[in-house]
Design a protein around this nucleic acid. Sequence first.
DNA 1: AGATAAATTCGACACTGCGTCAAAAATCGT
DNA 2: ACGATTTTTGACGCAGTGTCGAATTTATCT
Lengths: 213, 213
Amino acid sequence: MNSQADTGQSLPRARRRPRVSKGDLREQALLDAAEEQLRHSSVAELTMDSIARKAGITRSAAYFYFGSKEDVVHAVIERATEHLFTGLDAAGQAEADTALHQALNALLDNWRHHGHIFRVGIELAAHPGYRHVWAGLIEHGVTLACAAVARDRARGLVGTDPDEDEKLLRVVAWACERNCYLLFAREHTAQEESELLSALSTLAHRTLGYTGR
Amino acid sequence: MNSQADTGQSLPRARRRPRVSKGDLREQALLDAAEEQLRHSSVAELTMDSIARKAGITRSAAYFYFGSKEDVVHAVIERATEHLFTGLDAAGQAEADTALHQALNALLDNWRHHGHIFRVGIELAAHPGYRHVWAGLIEHGVTLACAAVARDRARGLVGTDPDEDEKLLRVVAWACERNCYLLFAREHTAQEESELLSALSTLAHRTLGYTGR
DNA sequence: AGATAAATTCGACACTGCGTCAAAAATCGT
DNA sequence: ACGATTTTTGACGCAGTGTCGAATTTATCT
Protein backbone atom coordinates (compact mmCIF):
# COMPACT_ATOMS: atom_id res chain seq x y z
CA MET A 1 0.00 0.00 0.00
CA ASN A 2 2.95 2.27 -0.62
CA SER A 3 2.14 5.47 -2.37
CA GLN A 4 4.44 5.02 -5.34
CA ALA A 5 2.50 1.91 -6.30
CA ASP A 6 -0.77 3.79 -6.66
CA THR A 7 -0.82 4.69 -10.29
CA GLY A 8 2.73 5.27 -11.35
CA GLN A 9 1.76 8.62 -12.79
CA SER A 10 3.66 11.14 -10.70
CA LEU A 11 5.63 9.94 -7.76
CA PRO A 12 5.54 11.42 -4.28
CA ARG A 13 8.36 11.01 -1.81
CA ALA A 14 9.02 7.30 -1.19
CA ARG A 15 8.13 5.43 1.97
CA ARG A 16 9.88 2.22 2.84
CA ARG A 17 8.34 0.46 5.80
CA PRO A 18 5.78 -2.15 4.66
CA ARG A 19 4.17 -2.30 8.12
CA VAL A 20 0.88 -0.64 8.90
CA SER A 21 2.11 2.77 9.98
CA LYS A 22 0.45 6.05 10.74
CA GLY A 23 0.97 6.99 7.14
CA ASP A 24 -0.98 4.05 5.78
CA LEU A 25 -3.94 5.17 7.83
CA ARG A 26 -3.55 8.70 6.51
CA GLU A 27 -3.52 7.33 2.98
CA GLN A 28 -6.85 5.64 3.59
CA ALA A 29 -8.17 8.76 5.32
CA LEU A 30 -7.29 10.77 2.23
CA LEU A 31 -9.10 8.32 -0.02
CA ASP A 32 -12.10 8.35 2.31
CA ALA A 33 -12.14 12.14 2.30
CA ALA A 34 -11.93 12.28 -1.48
CA GLU A 35 -14.59 9.62 -2.04
CA GLU A 36 -16.93 11.34 0.40
CA GLN A 37 -16.61 14.66 -1.38
CA LEU A 38 -17.03 13.03 -4.78
CA ARG A 39 -20.50 11.94 -3.74
CA HIS A 40 -21.64 15.51 -3.94
CA SER A 41 -19.22 17.29 -6.23
CA SER A 42 -17.44 16.72 -9.52
CA VAL A 43 -13.76 15.98 -10.06
CA ALA A 44 -13.16 19.55 -11.19
CA GLU A 45 -14.54 20.96 -7.96
CA LEU A 46 -12.40 18.72 -5.79
CA THR A 47 -9.21 20.38 -4.54
CA MET A 48 -6.13 18.91 -2.93
CA ASP A 49 -6.71 21.32 -0.08
CA SER A 50 -10.26 20.23 0.66
CA ILE A 51 -9.22 16.58 0.60
CA ALA A 52 -6.30 17.16 2.94
CA ARG A 53 -8.28 19.31 5.35
CA LYS A 54 -11.02 16.71 5.59
CA ALA A 55 -8.36 14.11 6.34
CA GLY A 56 -6.94 16.33 9.05
CA ILE A 57 -3.63 17.33 7.48
CA THR A 58 -2.17 20.09 5.36
CA ARG A 59 -2.22 20.19 1.59
CA SER A 60 1.55 19.84 1.53
CA ALA A 61 1.37 16.74 3.70
CA ALA A 62 -1.09 15.17 1.29
CA TYR A 63 1.50 15.49 -1.47
CA PHE A 64 3.64 13.14 0.58
CA TYR A 65 1.13 10.41 -0.18
CA PHE A 66 -0.13 11.28 -3.63
CA GLY A 67 1.63 13.11 -6.39
CA SER A 68 -1.41 14.92 -7.64
CA LYS A 69 -5.15 15.31 -7.31
CA GLU A 70 -5.66 12.96 -10.21
CA ASP A 71 -3.60 10.32 -8.45
CA VAL A 72 -5.93 10.50 -5.48
CA VAL A 73 -8.97 10.12 -7.68
CA HIS A 74 -7.40 7.23 -9.59
CA ALA A 75 -6.71 5.50 -6.29
CA VAL A 76 -10.27 6.12 -5.14
CA ILE A 77 -11.64 4.55 -8.28
CA GLU A 78 -9.22 1.64 -8.13
CA ARG A 79 -10.15 0.92 -4.55
CA ALA A 80 -13.86 1.09 -5.35
CA THR A 81 -13.78 -0.95 -8.54
CA GLU A 82 -12.14 -3.92 -6.90
CA HIS A 83 -15.50 -5.14 -5.76
CA LEU A 84 -17.10 -4.28 -9.02
CA PHE A 85 -19.16 -6.26 -11.46
CA THR A 86 -20.27 -8.50 -8.64
CA GLY A 87 -23.25 -10.44 -9.80
CA LEU A 88 -22.50 -10.04 -13.48
CA ASP A 89 -20.64 -13.34 -13.68
CA ALA A 90 -23.19 -15.05 -11.48
CA ALA A 91 -25.93 -14.11 -13.95
CA GLY A 92 -27.68 -17.13 -15.36
CA GLN A 93 -28.38 -18.96 -12.11
CA ALA A 94 -32.07 -18.20 -12.14
CA GLU A 95 -33.72 -20.19 -14.90
CA ALA A 96 -36.71 -17.90 -14.98
CA ASP A 97 -35.06 -15.25 -17.13
CA THR A 98 -32.22 -14.94 -19.62
CA ALA A 99 -28.64 -14.64 -18.35
CA LEU A 100 -28.36 -11.44 -20.34
CA HIS A 101 -31.27 -9.87 -18.51
CA GLN A 102 -29.86 -10.94 -15.17
CA ALA A 103 -26.52 -9.44 -16.11
CA LEU A 104 -28.18 -6.14 -16.98
CA ASN A 105 -30.08 -6.28 -13.72
CA ALA A 106 -26.82 -6.80 -11.85
CA LEU A 107 -25.26 -3.93 -13.76
CA LEU A 108 -28.00 -1.55 -12.70
CA ASP A 109 -27.50 -2.77 -9.17
CA ASN A 110 -23.82 -1.91 -9.42
CA TRP A 111 -24.77 1.56 -10.57
CA ARG A 112 -27.10 1.97 -7.62
CA HIS A 113 -24.32 1.15 -5.18
CA HIS A 114 -21.24 2.60 -6.87
CA GLY A 115 -22.84 5.12 -9.18
CA HIS A 116 -20.94 8.06 -7.78
CA ILE A 117 -17.64 6.31 -8.45
CA PHE A 118 -18.65 5.26 -11.95
CA ARG A 119 -19.61 8.84 -12.64
CA VAL A 120 -16.16 10.04 -11.62
CA GLY A 121 -14.48 7.37 -13.71
CA ILE A 122 -16.42 8.44 -16.76
CA GLU A 123 -15.71 12.11 -16.22
CA LEU A 124 -12.04 11.30 -15.74
CA ALA A 125 -12.06 9.24 -18.94
CA ALA A 126 -12.49 12.48 -20.88
CA HIS A 127 -8.80 12.95 -20.17
CA PRO A 128 -6.86 10.83 -22.71
CA GLY A 129 -4.42 9.51 -20.14
CA TYR A 130 -7.07 7.70 -18.17
CA ARG A 131 -9.30 6.66 -21.05
CA HIS A 132 -7.80 3.21 -21.54
CA VAL A 133 -8.28 2.33 -17.87
CA TRP A 134 -11.97 2.98 -18.09
CA ALA A 135 -12.15 1.24 -21.46
CA GLY A 136 -10.53 -1.77 -19.82
CA LEU A 137 -13.28 -1.85 -17.24
CA ILE A 138 -15.93 -1.80 -19.93
CA GLU A 139 -14.08 -4.50 -21.80
CA HIS A 140 -14.29 -6.66 -18.72
CA GLY A 141 -18.03 -6.11 -18.78
CA VAL A 142 -18.11 -7.13 -22.43
CA THR A 143 -16.37 -10.39 -21.59
CA LEU A 144 -18.85 -11.19 -18.85
CA ALA A 145 -21.75 -10.31 -21.13
CA CYS A 146 -20.36 -12.57 -23.85
CA ALA A 147 -20.34 -15.44 -21.38
CA ALA A 148 -23.93 -14.71 -20.41
CA VAL A 149 -25.06 -14.72 -24.03
CA ALA A 150 -23.16 -17.97 -24.61
CA ARG A 151 -25.07 -19.57 -21.74
CA ASP A 152 -28.34 -18.35 -23.19
CA ARG A 153 -27.39 -19.68 -26.61
CA ALA A 154 -26.74 -23.08 -25.05
CA ARG A 155 -30.31 -22.91 -23.79
CA GLY A 156 -31.49 -22.26 -27.34
CA LEU A 157 -32.60 -18.66 -26.71
CA VAL A 158 -30.39 -16.94 -29.25
CA GLY A 159 -30.67 -17.39 -32.98
CA THR A 160 -27.77 -15.48 -34.49
CA ASP A 161 -24.13 -15.92 -35.38
CA PRO A 162 -21.91 -16.28 -32.26
CA ASP A 163 -19.04 -14.58 -34.11
CA GLU A 164 -20.91 -11.29 -34.00
CA ASP A 165 -21.56 -11.39 -30.26
CA GLU A 166 -18.49 -9.56 -29.09
CA LYS A 167 -18.64 -6.74 -31.60
CA LEU A 168 -22.32 -6.11 -30.91
CA LEU A 169 -21.96 -6.45 -27.16
CA ARG A 170 -19.20 -3.87 -27.17
CA VAL A 171 -21.50 -1.34 -28.77
CA VAL A 172 -24.27 -2.37 -26.38
CA ALA A 173 -21.94 -2.06 -23.39
CA TRP A 174 -21.12 1.54 -24.21
CA ALA A 175 -24.79 2.18 -24.74
CA CYS A 176 -25.41 0.95 -21.22
CA GLU A 177 -22.55 2.99 -19.85
CA ARG A 178 -23.79 6.20 -21.41
CA ASN A 179 -27.45 5.77 -20.58
CA CYS A 180 -26.77 4.74 -17.01
CA TYR A 181 -24.46 7.71 -16.61
CA LEU A 182 -27.15 10.06 -17.85
CA LEU A 183 -29.71 8.69 -15.42
CA PHE A 184 -27.54 8.33 -12.34
CA ALA A 185 -25.79 11.66 -12.78
CA ARG A 186 -29.04 13.41 -11.88
CA GLU A 187 -31.88 13.07 -9.44
CA HIS A 188 -34.19 10.32 -10.57
CA THR A 189 -36.91 7.93 -9.45
CA ALA A 190 -36.97 4.16 -9.06
CA GLN A 191 -39.57 4.22 -11.82
CA GLU A 192 -37.05 5.75 -14.20
CA GLU A 193 -34.49 3.15 -13.23
CA SER A 194 -36.80 0.29 -14.10
CA GLU A 195 -37.76 1.97 -17.35
CA LEU A 196 -34.11 2.24 -18.27
CA LEU A 197 -33.54 -1.40 -17.42
CA SER A 198 -36.48 -2.31 -19.62
CA ALA A 199 -35.23 -0.22 -22.52
CA LEU A 200 -31.66 -1.49 -22.28
CA SER A 201 -32.91 -5.05 -21.94
CA THR A 202 -34.98 -4.69 -25.08
CA LEU A 203 -32.05 -3.13 -26.89
CA ALA A 204 -29.63 -5.85 -25.82
CA HIS A 205 -31.90 -8.81 -26.49
CA ARG A 206 -33.06 -7.64 -29.88
CA THR A 207 -29.58 -6.59 -30.95
CA LEU A 208 -28.13 -9.96 -30.00
CA GLY A 209 -30.94 -11.72 -31.83
CA TYR A 210 -32.80 -13.35 -28.96
CA THR A 211 -35.81 -15.20 -30.26
CA GLY A 212 -39.30 -14.11 -29.30
CA ARG A 213 -38.58 -10.55 -28.26
CA MET B 1 -24.04 39.46 -32.38
CA ASN B 2 -23.56 41.42 -29.16
CA SER B 3 -21.49 39.69 -26.57
CA GLN B 4 -24.11 39.70 -23.85
CA ALA B 5 -26.37 37.61 -26.07
CA ASP B 6 -23.86 34.80 -26.43
CA THR B 7 -24.80 32.51 -23.61
CA GLY B 8 -26.13 34.70 -20.84
CA GLN B 9 -23.80 32.96 -18.41
CA SER B 10 -21.47 35.70 -17.26
CA LEU B 11 -21.77 39.09 -18.84
CA PRO B 12 -18.88 41.18 -20.13
CA ARG B 13 -19.15 44.90 -20.58
CA ALA B 14 -22.07 45.77 -22.85
CA ARG B 15 -21.83 47.07 -26.39
CA ARG B 16 -24.70 48.90 -28.02
CA ARG B 17 -24.07 49.49 -31.69
CA PRO B 18 -25.77 46.83 -33.84
CA ARG B 19 -23.66 47.60 -36.94
CA VAL B 20 -20.73 45.51 -38.04
CA SER B 21 -17.96 47.12 -36.05
CA LYS B 22 -14.35 46.31 -35.39
CA GLY B 23 -15.46 44.48 -32.26
CA ASP B 24 -17.74 42.13 -34.15
CA LEU B 25 -14.82 41.07 -36.26
CA ARG B 26 -12.71 40.53 -33.16
CA GLU B 27 -15.47 38.39 -31.72
CA GLN B 28 -15.36 36.16 -34.78
CA ALA B 29 -11.58 36.15 -34.69
CA LEU B 30 -11.71 34.90 -31.12
CA LEU B 31 -14.11 32.13 -32.05
CA ASP B 32 -11.92 31.20 -35.01
CA ALA B 33 -8.86 31.10 -32.80
CA ALA B 34 -10.60 28.94 -30.22
CA GLU B 35 -12.06 26.54 -32.78
CA GLU B 36 -8.70 26.17 -34.49
CA GLN B 37 -6.99 25.27 -31.24
CA LEU B 38 -9.76 22.87 -30.26
CA ARG B 39 -8.91 20.79 -33.30
CA HIS B 40 -5.72 19.71 -31.65
CA SER B 41 -6.23 20.21 -27.93
CA SER B 42 -8.88 19.59 -25.31
CA VAL B 43 -11.03 22.17 -23.56
CA ALA B 44 -8.91 21.91 -20.43
CA GLU B 45 -5.75 22.75 -22.34
CA LEU B 46 -7.28 25.81 -23.97
CA THR B 47 -6.32 29.10 -22.30
CA MET B 48 -7.93 32.50 -22.49
CA ASP B 49 -4.45 33.81 -23.17
CA SER B 50 -3.74 31.49 -26.07
CA ILE B 51 -7.09 32.30 -27.64
CA ALA B 52 -6.56 36.04 -27.30
CA ARG B 53 -2.99 35.93 -28.59
CA LYS B 54 -4.04 33.98 -31.65
CA ALA B 55 -6.73 36.56 -32.30
CA GLY B 56 -4.17 39.34 -32.00
CA ILE B 57 -5.28 40.96 -28.75
CA THR B 58 -4.53 40.77 -25.05
CA ARG B 59 -6.19 38.40 -22.63
CA SER B 60 -7.83 41.35 -20.88
CA ALA B 61 -9.27 42.58 -24.14
CA ALA B 62 -10.79 39.17 -24.78
CA TYR B 63 -12.74 39.48 -21.55
CA PHE B 64 -14.46 42.45 -23.13
CA TYR B 65 -16.15 40.05 -25.54
CA PHE B 66 -16.58 36.91 -23.48
CA GLY B 67 -17.01 36.60 -19.75
CA SER B 68 -15.07 33.37 -19.47
CA LYS B 69 -13.30 30.66 -21.35
CA GLU B 70 -16.39 28.49 -21.16
CA ASP B 71 -18.42 31.25 -22.77
CA VAL B 72 -16.05 31.23 -25.72
CA VAL B 73 -16.33 27.48 -26.10
CA HIS B 74 -20.12 27.60 -25.81
CA ALA B 75 -20.19 30.20 -28.56
CA VAL B 76 -17.88 28.09 -30.71
CA ILE B 77 -20.17 25.11 -30.39
CA GLU B 78 -23.29 27.15 -30.96
CA ARG B 79 -21.85 28.64 -34.13
CA ALA B 80 -20.75 25.23 -35.39
CA THR B 81 -23.93 23.35 -34.57
CA GLU B 82 -26.13 25.69 -36.56
CA HIS B 83 -25.37 23.74 -39.68
CA LEU B 84 -25.66 20.45 -37.93
CA PHE B 85 -27.68 17.35 -38.64
CA THR B 86 -27.71 18.20 -42.30
CA GLY B 87 -28.78 15.15 -44.21
CA LEU B 88 -30.54 13.51 -41.30
CA ASP B 89 -33.94 14.93 -42.24
CA ALA B 90 -33.35 14.25 -45.91
CA ALA B 91 -32.82 10.57 -45.13
CA GLY B 92 -35.30 8.36 -46.89
CA GLN B 93 -34.94 9.78 -50.38
CA ALA B 94 -33.07 6.79 -51.70
CA GLU B 95 -35.44 3.85 -51.97
CA ALA B 96 -32.60 1.36 -52.00
CA ASP B 97 -32.11 1.35 -48.23
CA THR B 98 -34.06 2.13 -45.10
CA ALA B 99 -34.45 5.74 -43.98
CA LEU B 100 -32.95 4.73 -40.66
CA HIS B 101 -29.80 3.47 -42.29
CA GLN B 102 -29.51 6.61 -44.36
CA ALA B 103 -29.94 8.69 -41.22
CA LEU B 104 -27.14 6.80 -39.51
CA ASN B 105 -25.00 7.24 -42.57
CA ALA B 106 -25.64 10.98 -42.49
CA LEU B 107 -24.82 11.02 -38.79
CA LEU B 108 -21.44 9.43 -39.37
CA ASP B 109 -20.88 12.00 -42.10
CA ASN B 110 -21.59 14.76 -39.63
CA TRP B 111 -19.04 13.25 -37.28
CA ARG B 112 -16.48 13.17 -40.05
CA HIS B 113 -16.92 16.86 -40.73
CA HIS B 114 -17.66 18.29 -37.29
CA GLY B 115 -16.19 15.60 -35.08
CA HIS B 116 -13.83 17.94 -33.29
CA ILE B 117 -16.73 20.18 -32.28
CA PHE B 118 -18.89 17.26 -31.19
CA ARG B 119 -16.01 16.04 -29.08
CA VAL B 120 -15.77 19.37 -27.31
CA GLY B 121 -19.51 19.51 -26.76
CA ILE B 122 -19.47 16.09 -25.16
CA GLU B 123 -16.51 16.90 -22.94
CA LEU B 124 -18.20 20.12 -21.93
CA ALA B 125 -21.40 18.23 -21.15
CA ALA B 126 -19.62 16.65 -18.19
CA HIS B 127 -20.18 20.02 -16.54
CA PRO B 128 -23.79 20.06 -15.28
CA GLY B 129 -24.43 23.59 -16.48
CA TYR B 130 -24.01 22.68 -20.12
CA ARG B 131 -25.47 19.19 -20.04
CA HIS B 132 -29.00 20.17 -21.05
CA VAL B 133 -27.74 22.01 -24.12
CA TRP B 134 -26.03 18.91 -25.42
CA ALA B 135 -29.01 16.78 -24.43
CA GLY B 136 -31.20 19.12 -26.45
CA LEU B 137 -29.03 18.49 -29.49
CA ILE B 138 -29.38 14.74 -29.07
CA GLU B 139 -33.10 15.15 -28.59
CA HIS B 140 -33.25 16.86 -31.95
CA GLY B 141 -31.54 13.83 -33.40
CA VAL B 142 -34.12 11.58 -31.75
CA THR B 143 -36.91 13.55 -33.39
CA LEU B 144 -35.35 13.22 -36.81
CA ALA B 145 -34.74 9.51 -36.25
CA CYS B 146 -38.37 9.03 -35.22
CA ALA B 147 -39.46 10.58 -38.49
CA ALA B 148 -37.15 8.27 -40.41
CA VAL B 149 -38.56 5.19 -38.69
CA ALA B 150 -42.08 6.42 -39.33
CA ARG B 151 -41.29 6.66 -43.05
CA ASP B 152 -39.89 3.14 -43.00
CA ARG B 153 -42.96 1.88 -41.17
CA ALA B 154 -45.12 3.37 -43.86
CA ARG B 155 -43.14 1.29 -46.31
CA GLY B 156 -43.92 -1.80 -44.23
CA LEU B 157 -40.38 -2.37 -43.04
CA VAL B 158 -41.02 -2.16 -39.30
CA GLY B 159 -43.10 -4.62 -37.37
CA THR B 160 -43.31 -3.22 -33.84
CA ASP B 161 -45.38 -0.83 -31.77
CA PRO B 162 -44.90 2.82 -32.86
CA ASP B 163 -45.45 3.96 -29.27
CA GLU B 164 -42.11 2.48 -28.28
CA ASP B 165 -40.14 4.20 -31.02
CA GLU B 166 -39.19 7.34 -29.18
CA LYS B 167 -38.09 5.65 -25.97
CA LEU B 168 -35.97 3.12 -27.82
CA LEU B 169 -34.52 5.67 -30.22
CA ARG B 170 -33.44 7.83 -27.33
CA VAL B 171 -31.39 4.97 -25.93
CA VAL B 172 -30.07 4.22 -29.41
CA ALA B 173 -29.18 7.87 -29.98
CA TRP B 174 -26.99 7.98 -26.89
CA ALA B 175 -25.45 4.69 -27.96
CA CYS B 176 -24.49 6.34 -31.24
CA GLU B 177 -23.20 9.43 -29.47
CA ARG B 178 -20.97 7.43 -27.17
CA ASN B 179 -19.63 5.01 -29.75
CA CYS B 180 -18.94 7.72 -32.30
CA TYR B 181 -17.17 9.76 -29.64
CA LEU B 182 -14.96 6.82 -28.75
CA LEU B 183 -13.98 6.25 -32.36
CA PHE B 184 -13.53 9.85 -33.46
CA ALA B 185 -11.68 10.94 -30.34
CA ARG B 186 -8.72 8.85 -31.44
CA GLU B 187 -6.79 8.06 -34.58
CA HIS B 188 -8.75 5.57 -36.64
CA THR B 189 -9.16 4.11 -40.12
CA ALA B 190 -11.96 4.37 -42.64
CA GLN B 191 -12.35 0.63 -42.15
CA GLU B 192 -13.18 1.18 -38.48
CA GLU B 193 -15.67 3.85 -39.41
CA SER B 194 -17.57 1.55 -41.70
CA GLU B 195 -17.49 -1.23 -39.12
CA LEU B 196 -18.99 1.14 -36.57
CA LEU B 197 -21.69 2.17 -39.02
CA SER B 198 -22.46 -1.48 -39.61
CA ALA B 199 -22.65 -2.28 -35.90
CA LEU B 200 -24.79 0.75 -35.09
CA SER B 201 -27.03 0.02 -38.04
CA THR B 202 -27.57 -3.53 -36.84
CA LEU B 203 -28.22 -2.30 -33.33
CA ALA B 204 -30.71 0.32 -34.46
CA HIS B 205 -32.62 -1.84 -36.92
CA ARG B 206 -32.93 -4.83 -34.62
CA THR B 207 -33.84 -2.70 -31.63
CA LEU B 208 -36.57 -0.91 -33.54
CA GLY B 209 -37.90 -4.21 -34.83
CA TYR B 210 -37.14 -3.96 -38.52
CA THR B 211 -38.21 -7.13 -40.26
CA GLY B 212 -35.67 -9.37 -41.92
CA ARG B 213 -32.55 -8.23 -40.09
C1' DA C 1 -12.60 69.70 -38.80
C1' DG C 2 -13.34 69.42 -34.04
C1' DA C 3 -15.87 68.11 -30.04
C1' DT C 4 -17.84 64.48 -27.84
C1' DA C 5 -19.33 60.01 -26.56
C1' DA C 6 -18.92 55.25 -27.08
C1' DA C 7 -16.17 51.26 -28.02
C1' DT C 8 -11.95 48.90 -27.46
C1' DT C 9 -7.44 47.86 -25.44
C1' DC C 10 -4.06 47.50 -22.04
C1' DG C 11 -1.31 46.74 -17.71
C1' DA C 12 -1.65 46.00 -12.99
C1' DC C 13 -3.84 43.80 -9.35
C1' DA C 14 -5.90 40.22 -6.27
C1' DC C 15 -7.22 35.58 -6.05
C1' DT C 16 -7.21 30.42 -6.34
C1' DG C 17 -5.02 26.14 -6.99
C1' DC C 18 -1.06 23.47 -8.16
C1' DG C 19 3.45 21.21 -7.13
C1' DT C 20 8.21 21.64 -4.81
C1' DC C 21 11.52 22.26 -1.21
C1' DA C 22 14.23 22.47 2.94
C1' DA C 23 13.66 22.36 7.44
C1' DA C 24 11.11 21.14 11.67
C1' DA C 25 8.56 17.73 14.31
C1' DA C 26 6.85 13.23 15.43
C1' DT C 27 7.74 8.33 15.54
C1' DC C 28 10.26 4.13 15.84
C1' DG C 29 14.07 0.67 16.65
C1' DT C 30 17.64 -0.45 19.61
C1' DA D 1 18.24 8.20 25.25
C1' DC D 2 19.98 8.24 20.75
C1' DG D 3 19.99 8.22 15.81
C1' DA D 4 17.47 7.14 11.76
C1' DT D 5 13.27 7.27 9.41
C1' DT D 6 8.70 8.93 8.60
C1' DT D 7 5.58 12.57 8.58
C1' DT D 8 4.24 17.42 8.64
C1' DT D 9 4.62 22.10 7.77
C1' DG D 10 5.07 26.92 5.88
C1' DA D 11 7.07 29.40 2.29
C1' DC D 12 8.01 29.73 -2.45
C1' DG D 13 7.25 30.09 -7.56
C1' DC D 14 4.19 29.06 -11.28
C1' DA D 15 0.03 29.32 -14.23
C1' DG D 16 -4.42 30.73 -14.97
C1' DT D 17 -8.53 33.33 -13.84
C1' DG D 18 -11.41 37.49 -13.56
C1' DT D 19 -11.67 42.64 -12.39
C1' DC D 20 -10.65 47.55 -12.59
C1' DG D 21 -9.35 52.15 -13.91
C1' DA D 22 -7.05 54.52 -17.07
C1' DA D 23 -5.49 55.16 -21.73
C1' DT D 24 -6.37 54.80 -26.58
C1' DT D 25 -8.96 54.22 -30.68
C1' DT D 26 -13.12 54.71 -33.30
C1' DA D 27 -17.63 56.45 -34.54
C1' DT D 28 -21.05 60.17 -34.40
C1' DC D 29 -22.74 64.64 -34.54
C1' DT D 30 -22.55 69.27 -35.24
